[in-house]
Amino acid sequence: MANALFYILSVGAILAAAGVIASRNPVMSVLSLLGSFFCIAVIYLLAGFQFLAAIQILVYAGAIMVLFLFVVMLLNLGDPEGEAAREPMFHHGRRAFLAMGTSVAILVAGLVAVLNTSFPAIDPAVAETGNDPVGQLAIAMFGRYSLPFEAASVLLLATTVGIMVLAKRQRTPRTQGERA
């Protein structure tokens, strides 16, 4: 039952991810990405990572996607009659397709490698209940991983300052060369 649900959700996540890059309207892209994140969150839940599933929904679906949607709406990019709707969606240079072909080749190589590796069977107790006890996670986060935790907080602080600098309106009058 859970296994069947995993395969259904995998197909859903892949289709939604394809919808992100295939849809012309950025609002539809954001909503497809949201669907993909929800499918992945339920996969985490099935695999037994309940806390991670909650974080995925709260941070990704709650915060990051709202940020994307806000920017799309702010810049009025979802307008199907707008000028952007008539422009081509994709790069059509040879280099773009070269990069794409290379990455698909790497994917195929990775799939061959994965399918040729024999993984030992997962511990049945872990397979059923998962391994995401929040208490142990907190002990590890504030004990063994306290240095990366502090580094993440410094990163967040630096980001906040950086975004305030970026978002601040320029008060100095623009020069002529800047206008052109």
Binding site: V20, S29, S36, I43, V71, P88, H91, A96, L107, G110
Partner: peptide, 20 residues
């Protein structure tokens, strides 16, 4: 699953023109 999702992401990164 992770490999397929990653490759779809790479495809969007290299092929789409819209920055968002």
């Amino acid at each position: 699953l992770a490999g397929i999702l990653f490759t779809i992401g790479v495809a969007g990164f290299f092929l789409r023109r819209n920055l968002i």
